[in-house]
Design a protein around this nucleic acid. Structure first.
Lengths: 191, 191
DNA sequence: AGGTACATACCAACCAGTCGGTATGCTGGC
DNA sequence: GCCAGCATACCGACTGGTTGGTATGTACCT
């Protein structure tokens, strides 16, 4: 996972993976039909690892659904620490490389992102219903959060550090707060 | 450029590029010292191409600086048409693959993004000054816009189409409008 | 004459994937 | 308790094709 997040899918060779994992090529191809098969498995594995990480964080342990949404963003911000390959997203990285050439990997990455966004979407929907907020869908806001997060990773990689990315997530936090606490007049057309 | 945006840097071979360009390998290595050199040149070329595209769009042809900022976002939204490799960003894609392994390409991508954000940053600053808005920096908002745009490209690639990406940009538009037309009480701590 | 702009032929390293072989463990018959 | 029969897990040398890059030659312009 670290190897793929550092070099990307295409630049990571099967030999690299075997050396890092301390296994032989025979063992690799015994467990994976092809390199693409490993890509799919890596996406699935990353997805489940991510869910476990967020479950442990306890971002949903708040009475008010709005607090849960904000806690999600806060936890996201808190994660931006250490080396870049350690906090960036394998799904967003791999899907950029493979969307046109490896449909199976693309689909696995899409699934991972969708699954990850689902609970956030639920909390946003709960907040909207509790406060009678309309004008946009909970799903579009949850996916917008995913976009900001993925974009923040790109900025961090371009800049060589997490500072710009964190600033961007703070803007996301402010937007969510504005939207979900705003009086009704703020709503535009649906997004 | 299309080749790199479709397959990525690592998966695109020099032979691929030569075939697409209709030149021989000798000609290629006459003009570029290495493949990495081409990567840098591609980033620079994309950057200048992008500036020309936005200059032509006339997004700055508005009296009010806020209208200019919104026109920028609107033009961004309008661009999401056609095949994915045609509207996505080479800089964001390449920097993800090369940030750890090809410092020269990473730097070229960073430059391109910074240069592109500069005029938007100026217009945001002008809006903030004209309306006395404080509480965040123009630079952080401009870079947040870059993050949303890059993230939108990731979503488009994962989803196989531009719809989610456009929704996300509409959220960005709403945020910019909220921030830059809001009464002063909305400001939090600096981002 | 000499430099620029190519073309052609070529190379060593590397790539994903294969293949014959081995070590180990499980299952059922006796 | 023991062994045959078989499946799973794994090894590592090998292969055919590909890779970025080079060496050498040549057409053309000044």
């Amino acid at each position: 996972m670290t190897l793929l997040r550092t070099q990307g899918y295409a630049a990571t060779t099967v030999d690299d993976i075997c050396a890092a994992a301390g296994v032989t090529k025979g063992a690799f191809f015994h467990h994976f039909r092809s390199k693409e098969d490993l890509g799919v498995a890596a996406a699935v594995h990353f997805s489940t690892w991510l869910e476990a990480l967020f479950a442990r964080s306890g971002w949903r342990d708040h009475a008010d659904p709005l607090d849960r949404v904000l806690a999600y963003v806060d936890f996201r911000i808190a994660i931006f620490r250490g080396a870049i390959p350690h906090f960036t997203c394998l799904l967003g990285m791999m899907v950029q490389e493979t969307f046109a050439t490896h449909p199976a990997i693309r689909a696995a990455c899409q699934d991972g992102i969708t699954i990850h966004a689902a609970p956030l979407c639920d909390e946003i929907a709960a907040t909207m219903q509790a406060r009678g907020i309309t004008g946009f869908t909970a799903e579009s806001l949850a996916l917008h959060a995913m976009a900001v997060i993925q974009g923040a990773f790109v900025l961090a990689k371009a800049d060589g550090g997490p500072d710009l990315a964190v600033d961007s997530l703070r803007h996301l936090r402010r937007y969510v707060e504005l939207l979900l606490t705003a009086p009704q007049e703020h709503q535009g057309n649906a997004a």
